[in-house]
Amino acid sequence: MIEMPDTLKFHFDVDGSDFSSAGEASVVVKKKLRQLGYPADIIRKVSIAMYEGEINMVIHANGGTAEVEIHENEIVIILSDHGPGIPDVNLAMQEGYSTARENIRVLGFGAGMGLPNMKKYTDYMKIDTKVGEGTTITMKVYL
């Protein structure tokens, strides 16, 4: 594939050991998209989807990496981790399904709405996951 010269790429390491930093990458991406002048509804979609995914990597997978690519026609978000993987993706996609314990819920997360929300706010979402190896979630928002 020939790369568009105007493709912008961002890479983030998402720290899984420090909950207080969870969401930092999404804040940076939101700021960048604002600076670049994207419409508010596009920015909100990307922000919410990436933020939910970033939080998931911290609370379920001990951190990972986030790549954001801004192409001419789409914004692509790739979240990869080496966490436990998701045994039953269909179940995990159900609204309200969560394996989060009370220690996560007191932090304000674990309602089981993250994955459905990521699907809702993006135009494309693919989950590659293997138990014991990790999870890669690719999301796209079309421009």
Partner: peptide
């Protein structure tokens, strides 16, 4: 009544 940085980040994501 929750106090952590994610309150601010969540508010920011939601505009």
């Amino acid at each position: 009544g929750l106090v952590n940085p994610q309150v601010i980040r969540t508010a920011s994501m939601m505009d």
